[in-house]
Simulated scan of single mutants.
Amino acid sequence: MAQERTGVATLKGNPITLVGPELKVGDQAPDFQLNKDLMTQVSLKDYEGKVKLISVVPSLDTGVCDQQTRRFNEEAANLGDNVAILTVSADLPFAQARWCGAAGVDKVVTLSDYKTNDFGKAYGVLIKELALDMRSIFVVDQNNVVQYVEYLSEMTEHPNYEAAIDATKKLV
């Protein structure tokens, strides 16, 4: 059975349970299976040799998630081709594609954890009560070692964009 962490996160002040381990800087990034579209799955290996800025959001159709994804899409131009910016949510791939089209987001790769919650369990961000992934940021280097982690303690708050971007820039 997967590890459960309580007392570490809230949604509008209400406690939620996170499933999976708490990753730390220096850990090997766990592999994952995420859906790029309904039929195509990708894993960590698909981004081999690149720095990965992994932005995790509960749903693109909420205000903070929308702003978070737009912000990293804007920053992508300054980070170069050796960086893959991955936005992970439990939204269906159809909803992710619709949202990106409507928002004009074209530099961030949206990946869905809807089918198995594999990513959420591996990265310690699956919200047991909601089957969504908790807002968090991971920066993973070219060798798949975690170099930056931010687990938000309150789901409705914004991550530290500058710290995540600085951590990414140091690796390119």
Rank of each mutant, 00 (worst) to 15 (best):
T17K: 13
A77M: 07
D37H: 00
L44H: 01
K121L: 02
T6P: 05
E74T: 07
K170M: 11
N78K: 14
G104R: 06
Q3N: 10
A95H: 03
Q147F: 02
L60Q: 09
R71V: 09
G124R: 04
V139K: 08
Y148K: 05
L18Y: 02
A164R: 03
E22C: 03
N143H: 07
N14F: 09
D66K: 09
A167Y: 09
V108H: 05
K115R: 15
L86A: 06
S136M: 08
G80R: 08
R98M: 04
G13S: 13
Y161W: 09
P93M: 13
A167S: 13
L38I: 11
Y123R: 12
K115N: 11
K36Q: 15
S43H: 07
G120I: 10
T110P: 06
M155D: 01
V42E: 04
Q68R: 02
L23N: 06
Y123A: 10
L23V: 04
L126G: 01
S55I: 10
L171C: 06
S153P: 01
T87L: 02
N35C: 05
F138M: 09
D91Y: 03
L152T: 01
C65P: 03
L86S: 02
D133M: 03
S153G: 10
K52E: 04
A9C: 14
T110C: 15
R5L: 12
T168V: 14
N82H: 11
V146A: 00
K24Q: 15
L38W: 06
Q96F: 07
K121Q: 10
L53P: 02
E157M: 09
G80V: 02
D81A: 13
K115D: 10
A90L: 03
V140Y: 02
K24P: 08
P30T: 11
P21H: 07
Q3Y: 12
N14V: 15
